[in-house]
């Protein structure tokens, strides 16, 4: 047997992730883009499961696919974007886009050239399981965890303030 089942699943998931990610960028219809993005999220959640991080996988689906993308889709449907009302892109905008994208590529290549991939351990890690993750978050990383929760709280307060204005 050339490949184990894990490898086959990994290949399939990666293929789905790449194709749907390309679909996000290349699709003309914004709603199709959003749907492709959702498929990408699912493929990534599959990768999380392969890494034995079920909690992360499910939270990824709940938060990104279940909540954020629903709002995205909501907005897309309301705006009713299509090719008729697409603003005409100026030429210099295209050049600027190409240049900044190219610059990002250069930076990425330069950064990744010296980076070494740490050797993956063959045994399954238990860190992604909810018990271990919770222990880690509430002991070693408690300060960043609490700071991020304050960030969310401020966002919530801001949303309520804006909502109260009318």
């Amino acid at each position: 047997m050339g490949m184990s089942i894990q490898q086959i699943i990994f290949m399939v998931l990666s293929f789905v992730a790449l194709v749907s990610a390309l679909g996000v960028v290349l699709s003309k219809n914004p709603v199709t883009s959003v749907l492709c993005l959702i498929v990408t999220f699912f493929a990534i959640a599959g990768h999380y499961i392969m890494l034995n991080a079920q909690f992360l996988a499910v939270v990824h689906i709940i938060v990104y696919a279940g909540a954020i993308m629903v709002l995205f889709l909501y907005v897309m449907m309301l705006m009713n974007l299509n090719s008729d009302i697409e603003p005409h892109k100026r030429n210099w905008l295209k050049y600027a886009g190409a240049i900044s994208g190219g610059a990002l590529l250069v930076v990425l290549v330069a950064a990744l050239r010296d980076a070494s991939v740490p050797a993956l351990s063959e045994t399954a890690t238990e860190i992604g399981l909810i018990h271990n993750l919770g222990k880690l978050l509430f002991t070693q990383y408690v300060v960043p965890f609490e700071i991020s929760s304050i960030l969310f709280l401020s966002a919530m307060v801001g949303a309520v303030v804006i909502g109260k204005k009318d």
Binding site: I38, Q54, F55, V58, V59, I61, I62, A65, G66, A67, V70, L73, L129, I130
Partner: peptide
């Protein structure tokens, strides 16, 4: 699975699609 409730929660949030 050890995340049963979260799984249900995730699937339910898909239902709207």
């Amino acid at each position: 699975v050890n995340i049963g409730i979260l799984f249900i929660f995730g699937v339910v949030s898909m239902g709207v699609y």
